[in-house]
């Protein structure tokens, strides 16, 4: 039984960590880290609504999160307010809405803790199958469009002149990000998932100067932190989400040390 739980957590963790570390590269180079925080927190409203209505599955949280992220993206594109301000408004609305809705449902504290910090026991076989499916689609999507996103990060005007459908890809990127974040919440939680949007690329930047190395080290460090975090959580009986993130921070510190020694 426990091995089943650990296996499911490991599979879900590896799938989402690879996707998030690929996304992390563009989030960091485009200086959009706050966007990750905003989207992760905007999923809170949808998950809380799920509890209140007694629904299972991901349809409502993903719909809620995707709509919120598209709204952030739209407000930013229109240039009516800065991206940070747009994210902030959606983020606080969704958190307030989530707390309000959760307070109306039974098991307020338990549900709240699970959403915010993850709960490894709640990862089901269905979550595993869904994570693998999203991983396959998301992985192919990001790799297929990698050089498209690369030029968009370099200069969007050049991307447009190169014939890239800039707006379409921009919105799709946010959709993929919000779906992956919702899927990762059970294992890692809303608060801690942001680590996977920043740390992979920060580790990569410490170990490599070029984008291929940064992406490769980002993916490897993410997988390592998932494996190490779940193992330590099992032997020390600690919360998996928090332990995974702590393992990632330790890897990041090692990468800083390596960078200093190398220089």
């Amino acid at each position: 039984m426990i091995w089943d739980i650990l296996f499911r957590a490991l599979v879900v963790g590896v799938c989402i960590s690879i996707l998030l570390s690929l996304i992390s590269y563009f989030v960091v180079v485009r200086k959009m880290t706050f966007a990750g925080v905003g989207i992760a927190h905007s999923a809170f409203g949808g998950i809380a609504l799920n509890f209140l209505l007694g629904f299972a599955g991901y349809l409502l949280p993903i719909t809620f999160s995707v709509l919120a992220s598209l709204l952030i993206a739209f407000m930013y594109k229109k240039g009516k307010m800065s991206e940070d301000s747009a994210i902030d408004v959606i983020f606080v609305f969704s958190m307030a809405f989530g707390v309000f809705v959760l307070s109306l449902s039974d098991g307020y504290s338990t549900n709240m803790l699970g959403i915010l910090f993850g709960n490894i026991l709640s990862v089901t076989r269905y979550d595993m199958v869904l994570s693998i499916s999203v991983f396959v689609v998301g992985f192919l999507f990001i790799l297929y469009y990698f050089s498209h996103f690369q030029i968009m990060s370099y200069n969007e005007e050049l991307a447009y002149i190169s014939g890239i459908k800039v707006d379409r890809l921009y919105y799709l990127f946010w959709v993929v990000l919000s779906v992956v974040i919702v899927l990762s919440i059970k294992l890692i939680g809303i608060i801690l998932v942001n680590a996977f949007l920043v740390l992979p690329t920060l580790v990569g930047l410490n170990l490599s100067k070029g984008y291929k190395g940064i992406v490769a080290f980002g993916v490897l460090s993410s997988i390592l932190s998932i494996a190490a975090g779940i193992s330590v959580a099992y032997y020390m009986d600690t919360p998996a989400g928090a332990t995974i993130v702590l393992a990632f921070v330790v890897i990041w510190l090692f990468s800083i040390a390596y960078n200093k020694i190398r220089i």
């Binding site: 790799l143 297929y144 469009y145 990698f146 050089s147 498209h148 690369q150 030029i151 370099y154 050049l158 002149i161 190169s162 890239i164 291929k212 992406v215």
Partner: peptide
Amino acid sequence: IEKVRPFGLFR
């Protein structure tokens, strides 16, 4: 950078 290719990470 403008020579955009599918799966450009491995180009």
